[in-house]
Design a protein around this nucleic acid. Structure first.
Lengths: 340, 340
DNA sequence: GTGAAAGCGCTAACAG
DNA sequence: CTGTTAGCGCTTTCAC
């Protein structure tokens, strides 16, 4: 591979001059710019990223850490962030945690080894201990996405999680449901905690006493949601509706209903948080609480790039986006059940 | 950030000794290893990736270039490749071309600037001119994935594309379909060309003369497939079945059938290449030609890593995987139609 | 406007 | 087995 030296000698100038024309970092005469650019094109020179990073102390690298790129919500986020970064002259590393905390820490280490200039992190825990762990491993500007971690100074971009639960439960309650099952995520994850709290509150506000039997943790996981839904449906007094905290759990629920030989919404109503791109091919079409994934992603990377550029400390602000209820076919009034 | 120097002075050894214990590149006494490792832990030292890359001439970086990470097929591929790379001590850059050729070349440039050690490329063109373009931009070991490009020495890992088309068409023919629509991809893309050729051949072998009206290019795109399907369905003599060359086009077809107020498979049979993870929630459940995405991805990255490690020239071999027909609900015998 | 030279953090000879 | 040193390709003063 040719180096800046080769360019310099071919153009008959000093290497510092070549650097100056590449980076427009110092005034160079038009004629010399011409010669240098010709030389660059002629030998196919491309600056060595690592050398640049080492010398300048700026890697021009951003890390994106998310649970699983295979989840359409996260792949959308990744695309947006990558596009914005590229425009700003940054390359992006995208890594999956699988919601495994050791994995998360290992990835953080790799990111640090690469000296990334900033991080967008969808963290898998929201307790203070994890906050401390994060703080000890992270030494660059960071924005938390779709997650919040106490004891941490980072900006965060999230959904209005309480509202998400509220509108889902209110929709179900308005339809007449009283026995409402809930598939939650995992304790110690902010989306889980906040959605759950609002869920319970909203139920109570509607005179529904939440039952421990009907609220079950499924770790945001499709397979676990499948199992949990089957169990719920097999209860002596099954719920007439179930609300899932994630898109993949919604899938799991729908599969479980099919597998149980039941029909949605006739036998059971289903709502989830997080939409899919082609609802019309689903059976039934899902009623969901949708979140503006792309806008949220865009905002988060803008905040991060601004923080990096300004070299200012994070504000610690949390930017919330509003969810929206999209009523389709998977929810309906409960069937009349005879009193026991 | 602490450097290797800090570690050395804290451990009371020379920096070369620190390097030796980190990389196990030279014998060091147990006792010194201890001291060095303690120092590393104490000051939280992590080798500087760029410095290492610059000095050693090995970036430990792999590039993965694909059409769109948002497509579940490609996100699966990305996960597998990233996992294998990580195990082998490589980090991965994943970039989207959107099947745009300029974009592809721009990404290739970025990869070259980072001095990636190797590339897995899902190329968006398969003509010789593109082969030459690629050759001029790529100077590292590369394996082509789900694509093949002539005038190029790279190894390739693909589906048996001809077989994929053949089993789809044979299935339709066996069901009694004679007017078969085909939603193809884009000319100059190997998956398009090879699938199309086998399609036409198989039709002829079954006494079906392929009609230009019924074979339409939809660029592997969901929205275009939607439009093309609507047009096909509005024909005076519409096809009784349609075969799409990709997963997203299958979605587009299904949406178009819904939008046209028709019912699949009663009014029209639908098959596609590429499966989805939760077929049972689709309406109807899709009959597809499935491809072993994860295995293919694994093989491709293994080939790449082996080529990098052996420093040998590529073999130029093409490894093909067998597709498999999965019959579900979206195909059935055509309705009897009265002679015109 | 241009060029010489120092040095970013690390690895790899090589000498001791 | 340990330490000294050159230099990877680049940016950035600082003379000229």
């Amino acid at each position: 591979m040719p180096t800046i030296k080769d360019v310099a000698s071919r153009a008959g100038v000093a290497i510092s001059t070549v650097s100056a024309v590449i980076n427009r970092s110092a005034p160079v005469s038009e004629e010399v710019i011409q010669r240098v650019e010709e030389a660059i094109a002629a030998i196919g020179y491309l600056p060595h990223g690592a050398a640049k990073a080492l010398r300048s102390g700026d890697s021009r690298l951003i890390g994106l850490i998310l649970p699983d790129i295979t989840n359409p919500f996260f792949s959308t986020v990744a695309r947006v962030i990558e596009t914005v970064c590229m425009r700003a002259g940054y390359m992006t590393f995208v890594y999956n945690t699988d919601e495994d905390i050791d994995h998360e820490m290992r990835i953080l280490k790799m990111m640090r080894a690469q000296r990334v200039a900033g991080l967008v992190l969808i963290s898998t825990r929201s307790d203070a201990e994890h906050g401390r762990r994060l703080m000890s491993e992270i030494n660059v500007p960071t924005v938390l996405f779709s997650s919040s971690v106490p004891a941490t100074p980072y900006d965060a971009v999230t959904l209005d999680e309480a509202m998400a639960s509220r509108i889902a439960i209110e929709h179900l309650a308005a339809l007449g449901h009283r026995r409402i099952g809930v598939l939650t995520g995992r304790p110690n994850v902010s989306t889980h905690e906040e959605r759950l709290e609002a869920c319970v509150e909203t139920m109570r506000a509607h005179g529904i006493e939440p039952s421990g039997d009907l609220i079950v943790a499924a770790n945001f996981d499709q397979a676990q949601a499948f199992g949990a839904t089957k169990a719920l449906l097999a209860l002596p007094e099954p719920p007439s509706a179930i609300f899932a905290f994630s898109n993949l759990m919604m899938i799991g629920m729908m599969r479980a209903v099919v597998a149980s030989g039941l029909s949605c919404p006739r036998d059971i109503s289903l709502v989830g948080i997080g939409d899919f791109e082609w609802p019309e091919i689903m059976n039934p079409q899902m009623t969901v609480v949708s979140m503006p994934a792309a806008e949220m992603a865009e905002r988060s990377i803008e905040i991060l790039l601004a923080e990096i550029a300004s070299k200012r400390a994070p504000t610690g602000r949390r930017t919330m986006f509003e969810p929206r209820l999209i009523i389709r076919e998977s929810t309906a009034a409960p069937r009349l059940s005879l009193p026991a």
